[in-house]
Every structure is written in C-alpha cells, then in structure tokens.
Design a protein around this nucleic acid. Structure first.
Lengths: 221, 221
DNA sequence: ATCGAGCTCACGGAAAACCGTGAGCTAAAA
DNA sequence: TTTTAGCTCACGGTTTTCCGTGAGCTCGAT
C-alpha cells in the first residue's frame, strides 16, 4: 500500500454536503486520495498557491469566484491540475465554454457517483471525459441535428456572447434596469440597450426575463 | 448487530451524484440504513406505495413532481415518514412553506455532510431540525429584525402569494408577456397586470425579471 | 349578516423595454 | 494592410411594463 501512488484530488463546490458526499464516494477507491476541498473559487485559487493536486473537481456555480473564474486563473499557468467540471445542467453552451478555457472533463450532477471516479481517472490519464447526456449532445451537434449548427450552416455565424455582454447579462439577472447598468459600467444607456438587444438575439430569448432565466440556468449569478 | 434497529432512510434528489454521496456518508453511521432512493418526485410517491422508511431526505428541485408536490401528497396520509427537506437555498419563505405542508426539518445543501446524519436522527426522534443559517433566520424573524415581520407589525398583513398569483408567476418566469398570459388564462390584461403588481409588491422585487428569478430560485418552474 | 380575501377589470400617465438601423473607434487577426 | 469583431453611441418609434387607484363580484369565515 505504501508504494501505490494515488491520484490526488481537490474538490470545489459551495455545497459542503456534496463535497462530503463525493469524499465518501472517493474514499472507497484505493487509487484516489482527496487532498483538499474548497467552498468557493477564491479558496481554490488560494489553495493552489501553496498546494497541488493531480485533478480538480470544479463546480461552476460558486460564490466569490465561480468555476469559470477559476479556469481562467489556471489558463495562464504552466503547472495546473486536470480539471473536471461539475454542473447541475448539461448545457452544451457551457460545455463549449469551459472546454475552451481549459477544462478536461464535464460531469452533470445528475450522473451516478461511480462516474466521478471514472472521470477523475480518465482525465488523470490525459483523456477527456464527458457524462452521458453531454456526450450525446456533442455528437448531435457534429451530426448537424442541433439548432446551433443549423444556424452555422445558414451562414449566420452565431458567436458566443462576449465579455461585455456577459457582464451586462449578469447585471440584468440581478434585476438592474438599463439606466442602473449604464451607471455601474459608466456607459450610455444606448450602449446597454444595444448589448441587451444582441443578447436577446444571440440567446434566442424573448425579453429580459428570458435573459435572467438563461443566466440563472447557466449559473452565471 | 442483528439486534440493532436502524433508522430506515429514503433519499430523493435529481442529482445522482448527491444521492450516492449522501449514501456514502450515511454508510459510515451504524444507526442509519439507506433503504431506497428516487430521482424525481413521482418515483418517491410510487416507492412509498409499496415501501416505507422512517425518514425521507427530500430535495425540493426535482423533475416531474417536485419536493413540494411530494409533501402535499404525504399531507393527506396517516402513515408517513419524517421528512427532511434539502434545498440549495436557505430561503426563509421556502422554509415557511415546507413546514406548513409537513416537513420536519430543513437542510441547506451548503451545510456539512455530518449535519445530515444529525438531521435524520433528530427528526426521527420527533424533533425539528434546521441547519445553521436557517435557524438564524427564523430567530431573527421572531426578534423582529426581519423586514417581513416589520411589515406584519405595521398592520399590513403580508399573506403569501395566492394560487392565481402563483400561476401567473410561473407564466412570467416562462417568458410570456402580459397579453399572452391573459389569453392563456382567459382573463383581461388588466387583471394580469394587477396580479403582476401584487407579486412584485409581495415578493419585494423590482420588476418582472425579479419575479422570474424568484420563481427559479424557488424551483417553481 | 357582515367582513375580508381573492379574483376580476378599468383608466391614465410615466417609465422602461423593445426594435431597427446606422455609425465611429480600436485592437487583433488574416 | 485590409478586414473583422467588439465596444461604443444615437435616434425615432412602438410596445410593454410599471404604478396608483378605485371598484364590483363571490365565497367562506366570524
């Protein structure tokens, strides 16, 4: 037992119940060792300043700094852990997003506990891991059955939302109106309206309510 | 070991990772026995038709039938398990709601895994259990520090939202505008607006976006 | 039988959102 | 260097939301 090199894992999620649960699950596997955990993104970044792990199980929805923020933090670093993103929703847009900024795997929370073990081992070995529903969606995207790729072949390239749009989206989802957002970002209300319009178009929703719902479903708040 | 009567527990949550996690945590306690689990409210109700447990750990946010629906189902029955409600949010309104319809305890998911063991044992013994943050909020409500109770002492009794308001709230949270809601419910747009106004006032939000967010946070959609 | 709560509807005015369209500036990519 | 994407802003017009206020109806509780 002393000779076995275990996979060191850090778990980050704002629900301690889930952390403790995952810890208990992983404890049953003798190849895996949970060496740390964090309840928010800030703590994750702090932890990795003086520690390291082979794999990071990272929830997207966290206070202070969210999972996206943590990924961005790591993206500039040379020595970083493999990262499995945990999310309540298997939103394909979110998958795209996190893969772009350095995630190695994506696990929907609705999947079985055993899968997390599999995911950790897979990304540790340098491969990518996706839970079932996610994998299916990726495939259907490639096969052209998805609305998004259909648009792409219409020639209307739908880029993902920009940083500025994202910040406005978040503020809309916090009940701020156009004028308030303009003041906070020091830009004209006209500009905010333009961004809002573009968001409504890009995310294919009907109004600000739709934007707020999208933001919440995708854990942007 | 054969003589020890264990507390039979059923776990209901749409995230299998969490179920497996809680199972693993509870396995370490020799007084508790997990005898079943469900991924949605419908399955919970179905399970209890031919099985029974001492305690039910119940998530609010579930597909098909949500936690509220399950509680309502149980409310008419004589022989029912003690119920600990699990929720992502320690929303005091939600606590009130679930206590009214028969919950025995309320556990925010952000609490530690050990607390779930405590919660199960406490409600099994006929007492009520609340996780820390929830308990604090209840106390502050009684002490009059909360805005809600302040309103009550102003003599303006703030009743919880009505059935009709709830249905309108749900439609707003689905991106429908006033006219569309009026058509769907066969009532005048003026009436819908009145309900919307009352909702905004009662839930203390600023606009329709706030209503949608409230609806989503409280898993009404 | 009175009272209150819930649901219904109306009206008028202010504010905000929605929509299309056009356009200038910058920084990065082709 | 030309092009493009992103951010900025403007304008005019339409629609919707927001807000207060008042009021009639029904049903169930006091």
């Amino acid at each position: 037992m002393g000779k076995l090199k275990k996979i060191k894992v850090h778990i980050a999620d704002d629900h301690m119940v889930l952390i403790d649960g995952i810890k208990a699950v992983l404890k049953t596997d003798e190849e895996i060792d949970v060496v740390g955990s964090s309840l928010n993104g800030e703590d994750v970044i702090e932890w990795y300043k003086s520690n390291k792990s082979d794999v990071l199980v990272l929830d997207i929805n966290m206070p202070k700094v969210d999972g996206i923020g943590v990924l961005q933090e790591f993206s500039n670093q040379t020595s970083r852990p493999r990262i499995v993103v945990l999310s309540s929703y298997d939103d394909i847009k979110l998958v795209k997003e996190v893969l772009k900024i350095g995630a190695d795997g994506f696990l929907a929370k609705k999947c079985a506990g055993e899968q997390i073990v599999q995911a950790i081992k897979t990304v540790y070995n340098g491969e990518q891991y996706f839970s079932e529903g996610v994998q299916q969606k990726i495939v259907s995207l490639f096969s052209g059955a998805d609305s998004e790729s259909k648009q792409a072949q219409d020639g209307v390239f739908v880029s993902s939302i920009t940083d500025r749009e994202l910040s406005i989206l978040k503020l809309i989802a916090k009940e701020f109106n156009t004028k308030e957002i303009g003041n906070q970002l020091h830009i004209s209300v006209n500009t905010v309206e333009t961004h809002r319009k573009n968001l409504i178009r890009k995310l294919k929703v009907k109004n600000a309510v739709g934007l707020a719902i999208y933001a919440h479903k995708n854990q942007l708040v």
